[in-house]
Design a protein around this nucleic acid. Structure first.
Lengths: 125, 125
DNA sequence: CCGCATCCACCACGATACTG
DNA sequence: CAGTATCGTGGTGGATGCGG
């Protein structure tokens, strides 16, 4: 049975709605940071260490965008040295399930995708 | 109750696995084309018309990548004028559910996100 | 009708250095 | 510790024109 009924809801406007959101969460780091924050409140440095390859700059930008979009809350403590903690908002937590669904799919199919890529590369270069 | 158990699976390698897949399906058009193809077999022109804003070039590139990754099959008919049809493979169809989960989340939260953005813009410029 | 080739603009991203 | 500032680059993606 096709799921076209559901896709119609999403594609009703030619995909603009889903695109508006995808444009925001489908950058290089956002979904990764969101799933990391499922652990709970984390400091900037914790996020940095738990996200190999991210630069300070990109972590800052990603967190700012998440805060701006209402997915993450930012708490600054007036201490020395400074302490800043990030936590998912309720809306942020609601993104965890779909993000994990995509993540599980990724885990389940990465090998098949790689194999297909390799085979395609041999055929067509 | 936290879903951290599941995120651990995904983030076990620092997110490299999920990132490897996200890098491929989180471009500007891929998820949109996949959900559109849930309708069944579609011609190039159909896809073009049903995806407002996409250029011929990007549609071609997106479809090539999907074919290369084994998510879409491409059938060329030896006719004049030419006819080419695209269809999801079994793996492609398996992506529909997670894609729709994300799509539904997008639909449900776009207003809240926009509101948060507007409020943030007023506070901080 | 399908889609490739070419050219080009933009910006996402990274590296590095500096600051409260 | 948690950023900000600046610069440089590659790649994504849009416009246009051609070709089978």
């Amino acid at each position: 049975m096709s799921q076209y009924e559901h896709t119609c809801l999403i594609r009703g406007d030619g995909g603009r709605t889903i695109r508006a959101v995808l444009d925001r969460i489908c950058d290089k780091w956002t979904l990764l940071i969101v799933t990391t924050l499922d652990q709970g409140r984390l400091r900037f440095g914790d996020l940095h260490r738990q996200t190999p390859g991210i630069s300070q700059r990109m972590l800052t930008l990603t967190l700012r965008n998440l805060e701006r979009d209402g997915l993450v809350s930012r708490t600054v403590y007036a201490e020395v040295p400074p302490r800043v903690e990030y936590e998912l908002t309720p809306m942020g937590r609601s993104l965890i399930a779909p993000a994990l669904a995509l993540g599980r799919w990724a885990m389940d199919h990465i090998d098949e995708i790689e194999a297909s890529r390799a085979a395609y590369g041999e055929r067509a270069g």
